[in-house]
Amino acid sequence: MILVINCGSSSLKFSLFDGEERVQSGLVERIGEVGPELVVGEQRCQVVAGDHGEAMQRVHEVMGVDNAIEAIGHRIVHGGERFFAAELVTPEVERGIEDCAALAPLHNPAHLAGIRAAREYFPEVPQVVVFDTAFHQTLPERAYLYALPYELYEQEGIRRYGFHGTSHRYVAQRAAELLQVEQFTGITCHLGNGSSLAAIRDGQSVDTSMGLTPLAGVAMGTRSGDVDPAAVFHLARRRELSLEQIETMLNHESGLLGLSGRSQDLREVEQAALEGDKRCLRALEVFTYGVRKYIGAFLAVLGRIDAVVFTGGIGENSAAARRWILQDMKHLGLELDSARNRAHVGREGEISSFGAKTRILVVPTNEELVIVRETRDVLVGSAGATDHG
């Protein structure tokens, strides 16, 4: 069995897999805050979880002694340029994750806390780290470099990294299976509270909408997406805001929430727009237009594509958002079938019109399964290297 761990700054999600089947999952939330809770299935109870160590102790108690855990796979948000693939946790790997913490200060320290806590409560179990950024390490220089002084890239690592890599990898592989092609070439749209698109050629990422951080790209639940950098200077001067205040605004008070003034949840924004709320309608238009614009840009990058694939909470479940995104794209070979689109809410399948030049798919993502597979591959590779040593 493989235990998958995803640590946030104040949460710890866990799932136990037997082969490729999830047999148990849960969440410890509000770690280090007032009233931390353990959620397993429909059950919710208050627990002691002052830090990630105590939260991992709660996970250990849930797992019990009967679960033969072979390995623990951790999701890591940022691997910088250091990590191209999943790796077995070693002191050197931990130092590498720590070195990348400046690029993801809200995420990597929490991931390290999870690794160290797991070592304490599962001391004999090997641990593997799987990086969100690794899938995008195939981007060419022309796609990942910013037009800034080059020494900022050399000395500070300022470049486009991209995120949601495990999701883009999974849906690209699954799309190849559905389309019966050896390697997928196309555009994957991971749309949810956080959203990103990827241009994929022959199974490899060649461009993506997120950048140095997950703030760039299309508008999201609370994140602004692409904004003229000069807006930061303007706000600092005119509103006398600090960098920290502007950072909070762009990450937590913008996107659908900021535009609508109502919610970061697209379902609520859609419903309010239908009821005549003009701000919500405007927020919906900005979000879907941004996705459509990136699809057009990535079509120009790739030329020929097999399909456009929708995934993530919005991509899988909002037929209305998909319809808005793909409107007026028939001239580019993208033609949505209305009945198919409505029928594929939360389930896999094709939603393009019969005979359309380019296929359009809905593929529910499964990032945890990618972590399970990559964890197992690392263990097999590690065992092989030991045998040949």
Rank of each mutant, 00 (worst) to 15 (best):
I5R: 10
N6M: 01
S9N: 08
S10H: 15
L12G: 13
E21P: 01
R22W: 00
Q24W: 02
L27Y: 04
V28Y: 01
E37D: 06
V39L: 10
V39Q: 07
E42K: 15
C45F: 07
G50V: 00
E61N: 05
G64T: 07
D66L: 05
N67G: 00
I72P: 03
G80S: 11
F83Q: 04
L88K: 15
P91E: 07
R95M: 12
G96V: 12
G96W: 03
D99L: 07
C100H: 11
L106T: 15
P109R: 14
P109M: 11
P123L: 00
V130W: 06
T133E: 10
A134G: 02
A134Q: 00
T138M: 15
L145Y: 13
A147T: 10
P149L: 06
L152I: 10
E156P: 00
I158K: 08
Y161K: 05
T166L: 02
T166Q: 01
V171M: 01
A176W: 05
L178I: 12
L178M: 08
G186M: 04
I187K: 09
S196T: 07
D202I: 02
L212E: 12
A216C: 13
V218F: 00
A219R: 11
G225Q: 05
G225C: 06
V227I: 12
D228N: 06
A231I: 14
H234I: 08
R238S: 12
S242C: 12
Q245V: 02
T248C: 01
M249H: 08
G258C: 15
Q264W: 05
V269A: 04
A272G: 03
D277Q: 08
K278D: 13
R282I: 03
A283M: 01
G290S: 13
R292T: 06
L299N: 09
V301Y: 01
L302N: 10
F310D: 02
T311A: 05
E316V: 09
D328M: 07
S338D: 11
R340S: 07
V345G: 04
V345K: 13
G346W: 02
I351N: 13
S352N: 09
S353F: 04
A356R: 02
I360Q: 02
L361Y: 07
N366S: 09
G384E: 04
T386Q: 12
T386W: 08
